[in-house]
Design a protein around this nucleic acid. Structure first.
Lengths: 265, 265
DNA sequence: TATTGTGAACGCTTTCACAGCG
DNA sequence: CGCTGTGAAAGCGTTCACAATA
């Protein structure tokens, strides 16, 4: 690198590692905050701290975009904001639809992060006819029947699925059929899509379970040799079926109200 | 492995790769579905398909837990459900608090995935005094003042932060101070925590930005040599500050209502 | 025979450490 | 001198392909 900067720093984009792409939004956020405080330049060390990564990683990441820094000085904040925004495709307008306006869908519609940075909610779509026309986040709910026309009319290529698990695949199919090629899935299901369609999933229950794993680890380290195999079945792998010792949750008097148990775990 | 199965398949847990841990909940979900359909055994191929991974990966993952399968047959569904549940720490009760009951917090409180699998909402906490006592998901909202006592009284070690970005670090500090050691963060900020505290973040805006990157890629591949550098500033890295070409979003007549623009990107 | 369990190869990601340069 | 940019090394994670075995 260093030498030979050709005339197109633009489509040098070929082959930015996925791990780097996933961090660019983080850097962008930190840079935006600096920009708002009118900080003109920032070192890799400072920016890395703000983004919660280490500086070597950050420098390596930026090296995939080009040589945008100045040795001995750091990075120009505004310039980097622009370059990263462009790299991420945020200098253009991305109409999105949100399908499934329950608690979560409504939260998403009201979430500022969607409206900012080039994302624009083209429509909120729900299957419940009784909800059609109701206003959420300033937008009228549209019925699922209109899904295809909404997508085509608005040139929507990004869809957000916030339906119950059972409806997700079907909604997904219709989105893809209508032309959506990127999907953000909040429903706790594995979606099957054709090649060329990207799916990212956000799964609250999975995140909690990962935390529980580590939490258990911590607890186990203290007591260590405790936990002499609770009442675990030492059943031979392919013998009589073993059942989880049923619900052994203590419902803690007075705090287990009517929490819906959808069991999407 | 194979040979020498010692008496404690239990705390063989040492050193399960993080990537594997992150997939265990996925397998568990697929297995639970099979269990509900009373399917007795499943092959790595079938289970992998249901979980959306390839079978080699699944077998490797399971190999870290122990030899729970039967060659020529497959895995006993119930037995695996139990083993994975135990590995993840889901056979015990995990009281959690959710802090910040806005749109998102309420959605989380109502989300079935929280209530299932050993997670129990110990309390919903919000800073707004006007909200205190209001019922959400069958639980009364508690005021932030009670945060410490709630955590101590209930032995809460997992906290969910769904506050605005500005309040997140402060809430986090109080949670950690009171004894929480695992945090699921929905606020778009980097949280700083002491060693020994786990943080996982869920960031809607980041996921969308990653999708936008790939989406842009796809579009670029079609038109390819098009996009001759929109109006990009070829500014020398450390020269005069470059500003993003201001808002060039077309507000698409009639659809840019009062969407809050919090800009947490 | 069908399918698991796993060494070994491969590829991606992170980290190191320092040359290059303003 | 200070800080970026980057080869090279180290560390993980995935995939291959096949020996082990119920």
């Amino acid at each position: 690198m260093a030498t030979g900067r050709t005339h197109r720093p633009a489509t040098r984009s070929r082959g930015i590692p996925e791990a780097t792409v996933a961090r660019l939004p983080l850097y962008l956020r930190a840079l935006t905050a600096l920009s708002e405080r009118s900080v003109p330049t920032v070192s890799s060390e400072e920016l890395a701290a703000a983004a919660g990564v280490n500086s070597a990683k950050l420098r390596k990441d930026f090296s995939y975009l080009g040589s945008y820094g100045t040795r001995g000085v750091g990075y120009d904040v505004e310039y980097l904001v622009y370059q990263i925004s462009r790299e991420l495709g945020l200098t253009q307008d991305w109409p999105v639809v949100i399908v499934g306006i329950g608690n979560l869908g409504a939260a998403l519609a009201n979430y500022g992060g969607f409206a900012s940075r080039g994302f624009r909610i083209a429509a909120l779509i729900d299957a419940d006819p009784a909800m059609t026309g109701k206003m959420v986040a300033g937008l009228p709910l549209r019925h699922t029947d209109e899904l295809e026309s909404i997508i085509e009319d608005n040139g929507v290529s990004i869809g957000v699925i916030a339906t119950p698990a059972g409806a997700a695949q079907q909604v997904c199919n219709r989105l893809v059929e209508a032309g959506v090629t990127s999907i953000l899935n909040f429903a706790p299901t594995v979606l099957t899509v054709p090649d060329g369609v990207d799916v990212r999933k956000v799964d609250l229950s999975i995140e909690l379970q990962i935390l529980a794993f580590h939490e258990q680890r911590k607890a186990g380290e203290e007591a260590d040799l405790a936990q002499p195999d609770t009442d675990a079945p030492a059943a031979p792998p392919a013998a009589t079926a073993r059942t989880v010792p049923a619900e052994k949750r203590r419902p803690e008097p007075g705090s287990d109200g009517d929490i819906p148990a959808v069991m999407p775990a």
